[in-house]
C-alpha cells in the first residue's frame, strides 16, 4: 500500500527502493504484485494436480503403484538440492539489495543453477529408471497422475533454470539496471515458490508412497 513508502528496505528483500522516483515505485509495485498474483494462479493449478493425484492414487489398475518405485535416499537428495538452491538464491537477493558487484551475484546465481541441475538430474534419472522398468504413465491413472504432477513441477524448474541463464545474459549485457533487478526479484519469487511446491510433493507423494 502506498503509505509504506517510508520503509523502503522492508518492502522487498533484494530491492532498495530508497533512491527511486515515485513513478518507478508504482511500476515496481505493480510488477511484483502482478507476479505474486500469477504465482497464485499457478498455485491453484498445482493444488488441483494434487487433488487429481489424491483421487487417482488408488487406481493402480494392476500396474505397480508409484510408491513402489521410490527410493528414500533419492528423494532426500533431491529435496536437499532444491532447498539449498532456495537458500543460495536468497544470497543472490541479498547481494542485489546491498549493491554487491555483478561477480558476487553471478557466483551465487551459478551455484543456484548447479543445485537446480543436480535436482533435475536426480529426477530425470528416477523417471528414466521407472520407464526402463516398465513403470510408465500409460499403465494406470495413478501413474499418470504421479508423472504429470511431478513432471509439471520438473518442467517449472527447467523453465526456472532457463530463466537463470537468461538473467545471467541480461546481467552481462545491461548490468544490474532497474528492469534486471525487477526480473531478479520475480525469478526469486518463482524459485522459492517451486521449492514450496516441492515440500508438498515430497510430503504427499514421496513420503506418503514410502509409508505404504
Amino acid at each position: 500500500m502506498p503509505g509504506s513508502m517510508n520503509e523502503p528496505e522492508l518492502l522487498h528483500a533484494g530491492l532498495n527502493l530508497g533512491n527511486h522516483p515515485p513513478a518507478m515505485r508504482q511500476q515496481l509495485e505493480c510488477s511484483i504484485f502482478g507476479f505474486w498474483v500469477f504465482l497464485m494462479s499457478d498455485a491453484i493449478l498445482f493444488a488441483l494436480l494434487f487433488a487429481v493425484f489424491g483421487t487417482a492414487i488408488q487406481n493402480t489398475a494392476g500396474a505397480p503403484s508409484p510408491g513402489s518405485a521410490f527410493k528414500i535416499s533419492a528423494a532426500g537428495r533431491e529435496t536437499f538440492a532444491l532447498l539449498s538452491s532456495s537458500f543460495t538464491y536468497g544470497m543472490v537477493s541479498i547481494c542485489l539489495k546491498h549493491d554487491a558487484s555483478r561477480r558476487w551475484v553471478g557466483l551465487w546465481l551459478a551455484i543456484t543453477f548447479c543445485l537446480g541441475a543436480w535436482f533435475l538430474d536426480g529426477e530425470v534419472h528416477d523417471f528414466l529408471k521407472m520407464f526402463h522398468d516398465g513403470v510408465t504413465p500409460q499403465r494406470s491413472a495413478a501413474l499418470s497422475a504421479f508423472f504429470v504432477l511431478v513432471g509439471t513441477h520438473g518442467l517449472h524448474v527447467t523453465a526456472g533454470m532457463v530463466w537463470i541463464l537468461l538473467m545471467g545474459a541480461q546481467m552481462a549485457v545491461y548490468g544490474i539496471d532497474e528492469r534486471v533487478k525487477i526480473n531478479f526479484i520475480r525469478l526469486g519469487l518463482f524459485w522459492h515458490f517451486l521449492d514450496l511446491v516441492w515440500v508438498a510433493i515430497f510430503s504427499v507423494v514421496y513420503l506418503r508412497g514410502l509409508l505404504g
Binding site: 500500500m1 522492508l10 518492502l11 536468497g90 522459492h192 514450496l196
Partner: peptide, 11 residues
C-alpha cells in the same frame, strides 16, 4: 524466503 509477514508493507 518470500517475506510474507504481518507488516503493513507486506499486507
Amino acid at each position: 524466503f518470500l517475506h510474507i509477514s504481518l507488516q503493513r508493507s507486506a499486507r
